[in-house]
Computed example of a mutant assay.
Amino acid sequence: MSDQHTTDFGYQRVPVEEKAKRVRAVFDSVAERYDLMNDLMSFGIHRLWKRHTIELAGVRRGQRVLDLAAGTGDLAARFAGLVGPEGLVVMTDINARMLNEGRDRLLDRGRVGNVAYCLVNAEQIPFADDQFDCITIGFGLRNVTHKQKALEEMFRVLKPGGRALVLEFSHPRSKPLSKLYDLYSFNVLPTLGRLVVNDPDSYRYLAESIRVHPDQETLRAMMEAAGFERCDYFNLTGGIVAIHRGYKL
């Protein structure tokens, strides 16, 4: 099978049409304990990463925000409070179980009226051009089959003057940290997955998918190729995570 017909699923090569189905199965498996696993895996630091993303987004009252791969809605909930009743947050995910978990959480927190929910594949965003002031995708881009296509779609639906932020696992900046991170990722994460959700394979995929995701400079170049300008990135926790930001000018 030629390489153009296959894509990465962790360290495996799988048919292009199969990846979305496999990713969906991963998140079906972990949806109900997704937040617990995030806290355990990151020692709660994921909350600080998301807070920093919110600050860099600069969202204001009355604005329209698209949150792709929203999961259980951590970013969407914060944005809903910032845009106020005259604004709108569209919370999306490709996985129905994850989206339902997120919707239930936001409803429990009283986030009604200015949040809409939609099943969305980031490669085919079902909205017209120039619709949103801000677009975010948190820990979701590495699961997308055609990442460049997703970035181009984000650029298309962003308003002129708007900004997009990609919060994603990235590549540690130092060799000692990288070795320690590898040891943790390939030994501790699958063990946690087995103990908490009885699914070590999904967390082995997580570790592998991070390693094959573009590094910081490559992703910045991809955003520029999609049309974004003034692209920059911010390394967090030594580069284990990075926030990329670009503008549609």
Score class of each variant (00 low, 15 high):
81 G>N: 02
77 A>T: 14
70 A>Q: 10
58 G>C: 01
69 A>C: 15
73 G>W: 04
88 L>H: 05
58 G>S: 01
71 G>D: 09
57 A>P: 08
53 T>P: 11
71 G>V: 09
53 T>R: 11
77 A>H: 14
80 A>Q: 09
86 E>S: 13
70 A>Y: 13
84 G>H: 05
77 A>W: 14
57 A>V: 04
70 A>I: 12
87 G>S: 04
67 D>N: 13
54 I>M: 15
67 D>A: 14
69 A>R: 09
79 F>Q: 05
61 R>E: 02
60 R>V: 04
73 G>V: 08
78 R>M: 13
88 L>C: 07
73 G>C: 07
79 F>S: 04
62 G>R: 01
81 G>E: 04
65 V>M: 00
77 A>C: 14
59 V>E: 12
75 L>D: 04
87 G>D: 02
67 D>P: 14
71 G>L: 09
88 L>S: 06
58 G>P: 01
55 E>W: 13
79 F>G: 05
70 A>G: 15
56 L>F: 11
68 L>W: 11
61 R>V: 02
77 A>I: 15
75 L>I: 15
67 D>R: 12
57 A>Q: 07
86 E>R: 10
88 L>F: 10
87 G>E: 03
68 L>T: 08
75 L>Y: 09
66 L>Q: 00
79 F>L: 06
86 E>G: 05
75 L>R: 07
54 I>P: 12
88 L>V: 11
62 G>M: 02
68 L>Y: 12
79 F>W: 07
78 R>E: 15
60 R>Q: 11
81 G>S: 08
79 F>D: 05
89 V>W: 06
80 A>M: 09
71 G>M: 06
58 G>W: 03
56 L>T: 13
79 F>M: 08
71 G>S: 12
75 L>N: 05
89 V>H: 03
84 G>M: 08
60 R>P: 04
79 F>Y: 10
74 D>P: 04
87 G>Q: 03
74 D>I: 08
52 H>M: 13
89 V>C: 03
75 L>V: 10
74 D>R: 04
77 A>P: 10
83 V>F: 00
87 G>A: 08
52 H>D: 12
89 V>I: 07
74 D>Q: 08
60 R>E: 11
66 L>C: 00
69 A>G: 11
58 G>F: 00
54 I>E: 13
87 G>Y: 02
69 A>S: 14
57 A>F: 06
58 G>L: 02
70 A>L: 12
64 R>L: 02
63 Q>D: 01
75 L>T: 07
76 A>L: 04
83 V>T: 00
85 P>W: 07
54 I>A: 15
71 G>Y: 10
61 R>T: 03
84 G>E: 04
58 G>Y: 03
86 E>M: 09
76 A>D: 03
76 A>V: 06
77 A>N: 13
67 D>L: 11
62 G>T: 02
70 A>K: 10
65 V>A: 00
78 R>A: 14
69 A>M: 10
82 L>G: 07
66 L>M: 01
63 Q>A: 03
64 R>N: 03
65 V>E: 01
66 L>Y: 00
55 E>L: 13
68 L>G: 12
65 V>C: 01
81 G>Q: 04
80 A>S: 15
66 L>F: 01
64 R>P: 02
52 H>R: 14
